[in-house]
Amino acid sequence: MLLPFFTWCEATWLGQLVRDSLWLFPVIEAVHLLGLCLLGGALLVVDLRLLGLGLRQQPIAVVARGARPWLVGSVVLMLATGTLLFLSEAVKCYHNPSFWVKITTLPVALVFTFAVRQRLAARDTFRTGWRSRLLATASLALWFTVAAAGRWIGFSS
């Protein structure tokens, strides 16, 4: 049902540009990977804090506020480079189970991070109760699934 849309994606000007270039895909892929490092750092520093680990001498809100611009920036970078990679091989992605795991978990992770986690991480407290630990565990599990499935796109076919 969605296949015509994926075929259209692959036929877009941008999709063709990336696909027809020898080095564009690898370079965008490398930038996507740099974005992963940044996103991982910005997420982990806050999730560790919510677990009562890492920077635990700071209030949760201070850590979350300090990491937030880089969280937002890395998500934008990941979405931009990810879209380019997807457009260049959309039909291949359509037939790839890992892609579907990633693309369905990603919106959940995004909504969870910017709606649910955001609210709890904004509290100006040092206390990490079961709620913040649960939140951090869910955050780590969701993003781990997105990243692992993303890596596995290249292995499964």
Partner: peptide
């Protein structure tokens, strides 16, 4: 593991540049 290794190192680097976690 890049997220853990490079990710945490990058947060320290950004702090040293005054670009992240300035209150820490």
């Amino acid at each position: 593991t890049l997220t853990l290794f490079v990710g945490s190192a990058v947060m320290l680097d950004l702090r040293l540049l005054g670009l992240a976690l300035r209150d820490v």
